[in-house]
Structure formats: structure tokens, C-alpha cells
């Protein structure tokens, strides 16, 4: 079955937004990835990048009156993964239905989205004050959503009292996408992730190390960790994302060059995984079961 799937990085920053001229080539919005195919739209996290998906939504929905449905997969409920949601246009329409998936319990997920949309911090009054229908799903087993089968690996993290999630999305056409937006950089976490994502073709992995080994970076996977996971899973393509706000275009390019050198030294004849920096500006990446291409 031939199916085209599109991946768009709307937000590639971790911690906080970093709009800057120094980040023009990569981007400055906080986490959001859109994965869509003909009949479905899935978002990974709802950082400020999710607002960049809104123009597409307006174009598509204004012409047809039917209801809108999407899934939002939350890897975590840190501010940088949730603060964009009040500005995501569909949430303001009764005809919208948002499925919220995470490894946290429904109460934990609701509490997070209530915190985000608190009356003290926004003009809204908690997640239930938005007109859209929002359903919460706490994943313990693989979940069918449209044609996709979505699996989650619960992850513990010292900064969260709830389980975080790594994701694997499988489509009947053979499309297989693994996503790690946050994880501790210890060897046990990396081994677990590699096991969960083994055989995935397209891997999107956090590389949140900063220019210095600061306290922020010590709780996140680095570029080297991401490469390690990519090698262990046997992924064909590895997209680095969740960049530290201080990692400018130049520093990110330099990291990519360094990793290419490491990969070269490891003498991988087939040169996989192919390494890419996720960027907000590059356009949509098309993935189908037999080939991959980048469309500008």
C-alpha cells in the first residue's frame, strides 16, 4: 500500500523559545512536530511551534465545514511542550476534537493543561474553558488512531512526577517513525530506547546539549547520545531536534559536521543513519514505505 506521510518540524527548540537572527536557518520555536498523511494529522507536543500549523488548518478547514480531528502526543508536560496550545486555532472551535495521548494519567495530563491555561497566566480559565472537545488517553498498550498504531515507552525523569513518553508510530504501509523528545542521558535509558525503537526507519531524537555542559543539558540526551540511539536502532534517517536555545545555526552545523566525522570513523559503509538537523524552514519531509525525500 503506497502512502505518503509528511513530517513538518514547526518547533525545534527545547527549554524556551529562541527567536533570533542567529537561528534563521534552523528555527526558534519550542517543540512541535506535525506528522500527517491523507486522512490524519498528528502533533508531537504543543510548544509555540504548533501555531505555525494554524495557517494550514485555516486553509483546509475554511473551505469545508466538516469537523476537525487531530491527535496531540505529549512526550512530557513541561512548559516548552504545552504553552502553544491556547494559540492553536482549532482549540477555539466546537467542531474540533483533540485526542491528547501521553503516558501520564488523565488527571496528570488535565492538571498540566489546566496549569498552562490558568486564569492567572492567560485570558482563559483552564483546559475545559476551550470550546473544542478534548479527550485524554493514557497509553499503556499500543493505541490505534486512524490508520496508525501508536506505541509509547514510559520514561522516568527526575524533573517530572509523571512518566514521560518516547513514541513509535507505525502505519500499515510500512512507515515506521520513532520519536524521542526528551530522555535522561544515562546508559539504561539509552538501552531501553534502543530496544523500543529497534528497526525504526525514521528516527527523530532530542539533541539538547548546549555550548557548555550546563545543568540544563545534563538532564537531556546530547548529540552523541542521539547518534548512539540511531546506531543501535539501525535507523535509516536520524533527525536531531530539541536544540538548546544557545545553539545557533553555526554551532548546530558544526555539531553535525563533528557527528559526520564520528560516523565516518566508525566506518559505516552504508553511511546510515543519514544525519539531519531538523529545521523549521526546510519544508516538509516526505516519507513512504519504499523511499524518503526532502521537499523544499
Amino acid at each position: 500500500m503506497a502512502t505518503n506521510c509528511r513530517i513538518k518540524f514547526h518547533g525545534i527548540r527545547a527549554f524556551h523559545p529562541a527567536p533570533s537572527r542567529k537561528n534563521i536557518a534552523t528555527g526558534g520555536n519550542t517543540a512541535c512536530i506535525e506528522i500527517s498523511e491523507e486522512s490524519s494529522q498528528i502533533f508531537i507536543n504543543a510548544g509555540f511551534g504548533i501555531n505555525l500549523a494554524t495557517p494550514n488548518w485555516i486553509t483546509n478547514q475554511r473551505t469545508k465545514k466538516d469537523s476537525y480531528k487531530c491527535a496531540i502526543l505529549f512526550s512530557d508536560f513541561f512548559w516548552d511542550s504545552i504553552l502553544g496550545l491556547p494559540f492553536f486555532t482549532p482549540i477555539h472551535f466546537k467542531s474540533s476534537h483533540l485526542d491528547v495521548l501521553s503516558c501520564a494519567t488523565e488527571d496528570q495530563a488535565r492538571e498540566a493543561l489546566d496549569d498552562m491555561s490558568s486564569n492567572l497566566l492567560t485570558p482563559f480559565n483552564g483546559i475545559s474553558s476551550f470550546p473544542a472537545k478534548i479527550s485524554f488517553h493514557s497509553l499503556t498498550t499500543p493505541h490505534k488512531w486512524g490508520a496508525w498504531t501508536i506505541s509509547a515507552l514510559p520514561l522516568t525523569h527526575p524533573l517530572a512526577p509523571y512518566p514521560l513518553a518516547a513514541w513509535r508510530l507505525l502505519h500499515p504501509s510500512g512507515i515506521d517513525i520513532g520519536i524521542v523528545m526528551i530522555s535522561m542521558p544515562d546508559s539504561e535509558s539509552i538501552t531501553n530506547l534502543a530496544h523500543f525503537l529497534h528497526g525504526t526507519k525514521t528516527l527523530i531524537c532530542a539533541a539538547s546539549s548546549g555550548p557548555k555542559n550546563d545543568a540544563w543539558s545534563r538532564h537531556r540526551t546530547t548529540f552523541d547520545d542521539a547518534l548512539k540511539i540511531g546506531l543501535l536502532t539501525g535507523a535509516h534517517d536520524l533527525y536531531f531536534t530539541q536544540f538548546h536555545p544557545l545553539m545557533t545555526d553555526i554551532l548546530l552545523q558544526s555539531e553535525l559536521r563533528r557527528l559526520h566525522q564520528i560516523l565516518g570513523r566508525l566506518n559505516h559503509d552504508n553511511a546510515t543513519p543519514k544525519l539531519h538537523l531538523a529545521t523549521e524552514v526546510e519544508g516538509i519531509i516526505s516519507v513512504n514505505s519504499s523511499r524518503r525525500s526532502k521537499a523544499g
Binding site: 512530557d76 508536560f77 513541561f78 512548559w79 527526575p158 524533573l159 517530572a160 540544563w216 538532564h219
Partner: peptide, 22 residues
């Protein structure tokens, strides 16, 4: 704001599980 002191609102910004940094 809404009868809540800024000090209390400030503290909410650092809530465990929301703050993406230590």
C-alpha cells in the same frame, strides 16, 4: 492578579513537572 500575589504566581512558574530545567 485575581487576588493572588505575584509571589505566589511566580512560584507556580517553577512547579515540579512543568519546569524543563532543574
Amino acid at each position: 492578579a485575581g487576588g493572588v500575589s505575584f509571589k505566589d504566581i511566580f512560584a507556580k512558574l517553577f512547579k515540579h513537572g512543568r519546569l524543563p530545567i532543574p
